[in-house]
Design a protein around this nucleic acid. Structure first.
Lengths: 201, 201
DNA sequence: GCAAGAAGTGAACCACCATTCAGACCATCG
DNA sequence: CGATGGTCTGAATGGTGGTTCACTTCTTGC
């Protein structure tokens, strides 16, 4: 028993892993998944390619972790806004508003999360997160219907349509680095989203 | 001058190319892009891998051709329905209806066209075709607004939202081979789509 | 039939990357 | 300090799959 992991050592390892994930996320946000090779990511983190495998069993596992963290943040933010104050329609409006603004603000990462081609493992994760978005939206819509501020409808379908609609409207602005009138874009998007749910203006 | 392409020979070559594209499309529809390797596609067409390069300069070029043909058919069908009889709202409803039914009928191909991961060259083509869907929808919406059957709105944004919404609602049913109640699904989808555009029920 | 030249073949080739591993380096503790 | 057993390195390995090319097979025009 001449070596035992000391708490400091454990912390150091966790920090190294954390650092790797953060840098990998930056690479993905700035250059896309295709450029995020193991060696590129390792370089960005200042470690050797082989050291990546100290922290993750495969490149896929790292990619999934990068995706999960970033996506979870968005789900949490959306969830908070949708569970906030106001009636269902107002919360829905704010949810779409916040989601869109955050995506436009960090368009590289948003594009990677929403639209960019990904390897199968990450694709599966993306599907899972879309389902979570859908569930969040569906809850608010159901509330709105029950409260009588939204017309009768199938909440799951509307929720799926909303996630698709928001994503598609944002994809083109996200794909380019050109400047947009964010307020105008967001106003148009929230208007469509509310119509989608059948809110009366 | 001992060999000159005779018309019959030219026709034979075109037929061979055609056959290759058709078989490649079948492979993509049945097994997905990932399984459509050059050798798999060549096997399906009954030719050697090397012969693919008689017809296309690269695998990418073949993939793009496969995508383009299939996507063009859908755009044409949608265009015809949207330019048919009835007011803007009715045509929009029928457009979404027909699009969804065709997709569900041929879910393998639809999934490949709409949602499955693709190589960059095909991804660019996909974006281009989405823009065409958007343009088609936008025209009808603009008509509807002018005719007063739809409320004032930004047609391009609504059109983008529509393509995204339709795609997203269909992705899950398309991804599985499970049986669905097509009529119910389509009814729900057209309802959301019409609300999206602000049509009064 | 035969020479010319194109189409077709498929095994070899090659580029690309994730992954491995033998050795270097370092932290722990008696 | 020195023995133990971890972490780190980066060049070598290996699998995958698109592409090439020397060769064979077929079509054409005389």
């Amino acid at each position: 028993m001449a070596y035992r992991k000391t708490p400091a050592e454990v912390r150091r390892l966790e920090a190294a892993r954390e650092h790797l994930v953060v840098r990998a996320t930056e690479v993905v946000a700035e250059a896309g998944w295709a450029q995020a090779s193991v060696s590129a990511v390792a370089d960005a983190a200042g470690i050797a390619a082989g050291s990546v495998y100290q922290h993750f069993p495969s490149k896929s596992a790292l990619a999934v972790e990068v995706f999960r963290r970033a996506a979870r943040r968005e789900v949490e933010v959306l969830g908070e806004v949708l569970a906030g104050d106001g009636d269902a329609v107002e919360r829905l409006r704010r949810g779409v508003d916040v989601f869109a603004r955050r995506a436009l603000e960090n368009h590289g990462l948003a594009h990677a999360l929403l639209a960019a081609p990904v390897e199968p493992a990450v694709g599966a994760e993306r599907l899972a997160f879309r389902r979570r978005y859908r569930t969040l939206f569906a809850e608010v819509i159901e509330e709105g219907v029950t409260a009588g501020v939204l017309p009768a409808q199938h909440p799951e379908t509307t929720a799926a349509a909303l996630t698709g609609a928001v994503g598609e409207v944002l994809v083109y602005p996200l794909g380019t680095s050109a400047a947009h009138d964010v307020d105008l874009l967001v106003a148009r998007l929230t208007a469509v989203a509310l119509r989608c749910a059948g809110a009366t203006p």
